[in-house]
Amino acid sequence: MTGKNSSATRGRRPPAIPEPARWLAVLLVAVALPTRAAVTLPGQCPLRDHIPPAAARYTLVIIIDDLGHQLANGRAAVDLPGRVNYAILPYTPYGKRLARQAYREGKEVLLHAPMSNLGLKPLGRGALTPDLSRAEFDATLAAALEQVPHARGVNNHMGSDLTRRRTQMEWLMQQLARRGLYFVDSRTEAGTVAATVASEQRVPNLSRQVFLDNERSPAAIAERFGHLQRLAREEGLAVAIGHPYPETLAFLHEALPKLVRQGYRLATVSEVLERRAPAPAAIAEGTQYAQ
C-alpha cells in the first residue's frame, strides 16, 4: 500500500502555498538567522560614525582638552560619538587609562603638553618652560610622551608664554619631526609662532579656531558650535577645542549625531593632515580661556 501510494503521488506537484503564508515564512527565517556583530578595528570608528564621502561637504576637527584628572568625565568624553580627538595631560591619575580607552574605540590621542604662561599659573609636572636647557627640554618632552600611550601628536596646555618663543618652539618642532608627530596650536596667545615654526620644521600642523566653552552655559556652547559650523562651510575645515565639562559633553552628545544629515563629517587630526589639507587660517578669538 505504501509503495502504491508513493508511486501514485510521485508525479503530482505539491499544493501551492498561499502568497501571504509564503512571505510570512521568509520573514520568520530571516528573523531566526544570527546577525553579524559590527567589528571595530584599531583606528576605526563604529559604523554609526561612518559618513558617505558624497554626503560630507564640510570637515570638523574637535579636540577635547585637559583629560586625565577625572575618570568619570574622561570616560564620558571618550564616549562621545564619532571621530573625536583627546588631548591628555601627562602624569595625571587616569591619563594612561583614558588614552588606552580612546585608542581602543578608534579615537585619536594627543599629548596635552603643559607650557609656560604669561599669568604664571601652576603647570604641574612635565611642563616645558624657558628656563630649561635644551637637554632638559628634550628629556621633559620625551618623558611626557611616555605618559600618554598612542599619542599621534601634541597640543599646548596654556603656553601663552612659551608659544611666543621661537627658540623653544624650534626645539619642540625638531623633536616632533624626529618622532613623526604633528602639532596643534591651541592659540592661547595671539602672538604665537608655534604654527609658523612647525611649518618651517616640516611638522604637520593645525591651529585652533574656536574654543567651544569659554563660557559654560548651554546657550553659549551652542553659539560657539554654530560659529564652528559656519567656519567649516566657508573654508571646508574648522578646528575647535572643548573641555570635559558636563555642559560641553551633554551638548556634544546631542549635537554630534546630527552632523551627518547636515553635511558635516568629524575627522581626526591625522586624517586631515594625511590628506594634505591646508591648515585653516588661525583666528585669534577665544584666547582668553587658557593661558
Rank of each mutant, 00 (worst) to 15 (best):
Q168A: 15
A151E: 12
F225T: 02
T129D: 08
A37V: 14
V260T: 10
D185C: 00
E146K: 11
N73W: 10
L176G: 00
T140Y: 07
G226C: 05
M1L: 08
R13C: 06
R22H: 11
G11R: 10
L80C: 11
T248V: 01
N85M: 08
Y182F: 11
D161N: 14
N73V: 06
R165W: 02
Q229R: 15
P42E: 01
M173C: 10
W171D: 02
G242Y: 03
I241S: 05
P18Y: 06
R233L: 01
L231T: 00
R36T: 14
L110A: 04
M158V: 00
R57A: 15
R276E: 15
M173P: 01
V148F: 08
Q168V: 12
E215V: 08
A267K: 05
V29S: 09
L67P: 04
Q168Y: 15
R125H: 12
V26P: 07
A99E: 11
A220D: 13
A238C: 06
R10G: 03
P278C: 02
E170D: 09
E235I: 01
P204R: 03
F183E: 06
V78M: 09
R22Y: 12
I64L: 13
A30K: 06
A102C: 04
Y245M: 00
R97V: 13
R125F: 05
I88A: 08
G286H: 03
Y289P: 01
M169I: 02
R202T: 12
V29E: 03
G242S: 04
W23L: 14
L24C: 10
N117H: 04
E254R: 15
E189H: 14
R276C: 08
R230S: 11
V184G: 06
P14Q: 07
T287H: 07
G74W: 10
F183V: 13
R152T: 12
V193S: 07
G126A: 08
F211L: 03
L41K: 09
A56R: 07
P149Q: 10
Y94N: 10
L47G: 13
L249Y: 04
L71R: 14
P81V: 05
S199G: 13
G180R: 01
V31F: 06
Y264R: 08
P14A: 12
H150P: 10
G236F: 00
V260W: 08
L98I: 09
A219C: 08
A87Q: 04
M115A: 02
L249K: 06
A8Y: 13
G11I: 03
A55D: 15
R97L: 15
T140P: 09
Q229W: 04
R275F: 00
K107N: 05
L120A: 15
